[in-house]
Write a protein that binds this DNA or RNA. Structure first.
Length: 886
RNA sequence: GGGCGCAUAGCUCAGCGGUAGAGCGCUGCUCUUACAAAGCAGAUGUCGCUGGUUCGAACCCAGCUGUGCCCACCA
């Protein structure tokens, strides 16, 4: 769709005089969003001929609400898709949510606990029903918040990982993996959360240093005794060996013998194993195969029994005085008992060591031997690594690749079964005679006496790994799947590179016959507070982005986040910065308002180059450069750069100079004013379109008012700026005009500085007289007078000094009103700076090595600097000489 | 224990081989008819330390110090 096919805007603010002097974001944002949705701007059509552009949302948890991290990620995705939409792509921003197995089950269980019930009181079916009910009532508040942010997602395609369709996808791939022998069942040591009562995968374990106590315990008696050290004394009840290094002479004589395990009356063997580090501690380690992953491996190598002494709640089950104690009670009880027997030979307290915690509830993980389902990741991870290695998928920023490879190349098999009720139930049925049957989506499960389904559900990341294609209808070959797979880019935080990205890569390549789920992975950083500290609820520095959006507008929040977004780098954000962004929005608002009140227009062709003033040509030339810069930054995911570029171009160049210069032109009227009105309209039109992906709301209001067209959402993305009559088919460029306006700026700034230094009031009468006759600035005399607020015709003064700034002559009155000493001081400072600059450049140009080796453009630059310094010295010396003598 | 990153203005960060930048904060002056959520002007840095490469280093190399993150089975 192009601009001229758009209908005129209806309703809302349509005339500049209706725009209030201050921008009030809250009043317009909500209505604009609903209008966009109603008009179907965000709907993606699988039948379209346009080139597709697809991004899937990293699905937020149903339990979640929008925090700044989401706001950040969504802003980046939204900006990318909005731009592509304007560029004429068939754009899909796929929304949806994740069922978040453990997290959601925990929330609902907590709710039940308030009623004094547990999930077991309800039973499996009623409990899951209850979760669905919870989801319907309070889950998914995030979608309302996404609307507030302005996320241009296709709501008609919203998906949930527990939807029927997505569940079919889960079952389908499970069966495929099972049949390819990439899913298997095995008894291993897994990470067990004794509070959630489920296994969790390695990456769901968070390690942190905890203070513990390292006790050294003497096993056995006399010459055949061995001292072992442990932080987990309670597991000794399950010890089935002591291990030493095979080459350790201290213990060589004991290998193969049995020694007494204290408190139990059992005798356990001493085994030799390479895993033991003879340098650490006493060089002897107790072996508890049922409660430690390393010990399990040692046990397997030596055929040791696995003796479990704790149940799923981490309560001791071993017969004896410790039965019924939980692991911590048991630990101190056992240490006490050992001490009483004189078995404790050393204690080190506190002893800081790394302990695993459940990422969901922070409970200390208990390694536990149990039967679980696993994905054999070897071949899948290999393919996922290769896809990046061979360049079919690229990672931004590139430094993150090494992390990705490090993970993919060393991935352990993935434990996918969870002892939960909320999630995709494992499609495995067991028969009365030990049969195991995997049931596909359209198959009848076996029935009859003794058949039952596996009670576990799948890891929540199993279904989110299918997200890039399950949301498009897979396993069916739908039109949407054909059109929108693979996704164009994945935008997500580096923190879930392994949780999520790795899984999508493996499953995508596997399910889609080697086609990766996306071509590019663009990783962003984490949002932090204004001091660079991690935001967390417990630390009290977490911010609710909705509060800021209410106060300053969604655009302000979005612009702040984008402005801080360097690829892969964390983003600090503080309220001051949101305020600054709001000020920017207000500035755009007022500048556009001014332009419209002065008749700026987008109607008709741009006037031919010959009819444009230097200022017009300058700003159009700059506009053309900015369009190109912004495009380049978008292609490289340099959000910070593109926002910064637009911010400075709009404020420093358009608003501070072009708009100010145009005031004089408008006041004069005539054809020059008409030309300028058209140029100002053009510049704002293009700039608003460039800004729209980042600040959609304020640009929509202003652009529709300025142009009278339907919506900037469906406007064309700006292309090269073309001016009739200018021989510049790839975009208008006018270096001479840029230089000329640069000189005007220099003169005006110089005089302003003089006046500020002199403390001269603007109301005070004409302290400077301009004589620009026969200079290139003659044409700008009126504008300069206006900018300096000089009287149209100043009196002549007796004592004057001239400032030969780039050929212009500014005559300054130095009689009477000025502070001669202050001026002398200022000039002396400037003179010193200029002389230093001259000395530096002269030294450089006198350096033979420099002249021989430096490239020509650099030398040219230095020569220019030298010339400028010399001119400055001449000028300042003249000014000093002209100062009244006393 | 490995791997990766970072140290630049009071704060948060750009710059990554040719005169030190931005936003906020700070100091003056100004209600100039788009905007005081503004305008104009200004101050502020031996670019962590030490060496090296180069005509030239904030930028490249080495070492050091400090700091952050990721991974890892050290009892």
């Amino acid at each position: 769709m192009t601009d001229n096919t758009q209908r005129p805007a209806t309703g809302g603010i349509s005339a500049p005089e209706n725009l209030p002097t201050q921008y009030a974001p809250a009043e317009v944002e909500g209505q604009l969003y609903e209008r966009w949705v109603e008009r179907g701007y965000f709907a993606a059509d699988a039948k379209s001929d346009k080139e597709p552009y697809t991004i899937v949302i990293p699905p937020p948890n149903v339990t979640g609400s929008l925090h700044l991290g989401h706001a950040f990620e969504h802003t980046l995705i939204d900006a990318l898709t909005r731009r592509k939409r304007m560029q004429g792509h068939e754009t899909l921003w796929q929304p949806g949510m994740d069922h978040a197995g453990i997290a959601t089950q925990n929330v609902v269980e907590r709710e039940l606990a308030k009623e004094g019930k547990s999930r077991h009181d309800l039973g499996r079916e009623a409990f899951t029903e209850r979760v669905w009910q919870w989801k319907a009532e309070s889950g998914g508040q995030i979608s309302g918040q996404m609307r507030r942010l302005g996320d241009g997602v296709d709501w008609s395609r919203e998906r949930f990982t527990m939807d029927e369709g997505l569940s079919r996808a889960v079952q389908t791939i499970f069966k495929k993996l099972y049949e390819d022998e990439l899913i298997y069942r095995a008894e291993r040591i897994i990470n067990w959360c004794p509070r959630c009562l489920t296994a969790i995968s390695d990456i769901e374990v968070e390690y942190q240093d905890d203070d513990g106590e390292l006790v050294s315990i003497r096993y056995g008696e006399g010459d055949s005794s061995i001292v072992v050290a442990t932080t987990r004394a309670e597991t000794m009840l399950g010890d089935t060996a002591v291990a030493v290094h095979p080459d350790d002479d201290r213990y060589r004589h004991l290998v193969g013998t049995e020694i007494e395990l204290p408190l139990t009356g059992r005798r356990i063997p001493v085994v030799a194993d390479e895993h033991v580090d003879p340098e650490f501690g006493t060089g002897a380690v107790k072996v508890t195969p049922a409660h430690d992953p390393n010990d399990f491996e040692i046990g397997r190598r030596h055929g040791l029994p696995n003796l479990a002494v704790m149940d799923e709640h981490a309560v001791i089950t071993a017969h004896g005085p410790f039965q019924g104690l939980d692991r911590l009670e048991a630990r101190s009880a056992i240490v006490g008992a050992l001490r009483a027997e004189g078995r404790i030979v050393a204690e080190k307290r506190p002893y800081s060591h790394s302990v695993g915690h459940c990422s969901r509830c922070k409970t200390t993980i208990e390694p536990r031997l149990s039967m679980q389902w696993w994905v054999k990741v070897g071949p899948l991870a290999k393919a996922a690594g290769d896809a990046v290695r061979d360049g079919s998928v690229t990672i931004h920023p590139k430094e993150m690749e090494s992390r990705y490879f490090g993970w993919m190349d060393n991935m352990h098999d993935w434990c996918i079964s969870r002892q939960l009720w909320w999630g995709h139930r494992i499609p495995i049925w067991y028969g009365p005679d030990g049969e195991v049957v995997c049931v596909g989506p359209d198959e009848e499960p076996p029935s009859g006496e003794g058949w039952h389904q596996d009670g576990d559900v799948l890891d929540t990341w199993f279904s989110s790994g299918l997200w890039p294609f399950s949301t498009l209808g897979w396993p069916e070959r739908t039109e949407s799947l054909e059109k929108f797979y693979p996704n164009s880019v994945l935008v997500t935080g580096y923190d879930i590179l392994f949780f999520w990205v790795a899984r999508m890569m493996m499953f995508g390549l596997y399910a889609m016959d080697g086609t990766p789920p996306f071509r590019t992975i663009a990783l962003h950083g984490m949002v932090r507070d204004q001091f660079g500290k991690k935001m967390s609820k417990s630390f009290g520095n977490a911010v609710n982005p909705l509060d800021w959006m209410d106060t300053y507008g969604s655009d302000a929040v979005r612009f702040t986040l984008t402005r801080g977004a360097n690829p892969g780098v964390d983003v600090p954000i503080g309220e001051d910065w949101v305020q600054a962004s709001r000020n920017f929005a207000n500035k755009i608002w007022n500048a556009t308002r001014f332009a419209m009140m002065n008749g700026a227009t987008v109607e008709g062709e741009l006037p031919p180059a010959a009819e444009l003033s230097a200022a017009d040509r300058w700003i159009l030339s700059r506009l053309n450069s900015v369009v190109a810069e912004v495009d380049a930054y978008y292609e490289d995911y340099q959000f910070s750069k593109l926002s910064e570029t637009l911010f400075h171009f709009a404020w420093d160049e358009i608003f501070d100079w072009y708009v100010e210069l145009s005031k004089t032109t408008f006041a004069k009227g005539g054809p020059a004013a008409d030309a300028s009105r058209r140029v100002l309209g053009e510049v704002l039109d293009v700039t608003l379109r460039l800004l729209h992906p980042v600040v959609p709301f304020v640009t929509e209001t202003l652009w529709t008012t300025l142009t009278g067209r339907e919506s900037v959402v469906i406007a064309d993305w700006p292309a090269a700026v073309l001016v009739p009559g200018a021989d510049a088919p790839n975009g208008f460029s006018d270096r001479a005009a840029e230089q000329e306006i640069g000189t005007v700026q220099q003169v005006v700034t110089e005089v302003r500085r003089f006046r500020a230094d002199q403390g001269l009031q603007p109301g005070q009468k004409v302290p400077a007289r301009l004589d620009l006759t026969d200079t290139p600035l003659a044409a700008h005399e009126d504008a300069i007078r206006q900018l300096l607020r000089l009287q149209p015709e100043g009196d002549r003064f007796a004592a004057t000094a001239t400032l030969p700034i780039a050929g212009a002559t500014v005559a300054l009155d130095l009689s009477g009103v000025i502070d001669v000493e202050a001026e002398r001081k200022r000039l002396a400072k400037d003179l010193a700076a200029a002389e230093k600059e001259k000395a530096q450049t002269t030294a450089k140009l006198g350096n033979e090595a420099f002249l021989a080796k430096a490239p020509e453009p650099v030398k040219e630059k230095i020569r220019t600097r030298q010339a400028t310094a010399e001119a400055d010295i001449e000028r300042i010396t003249a000014q000093l000489a002209a100062l009244p003598q006393r």
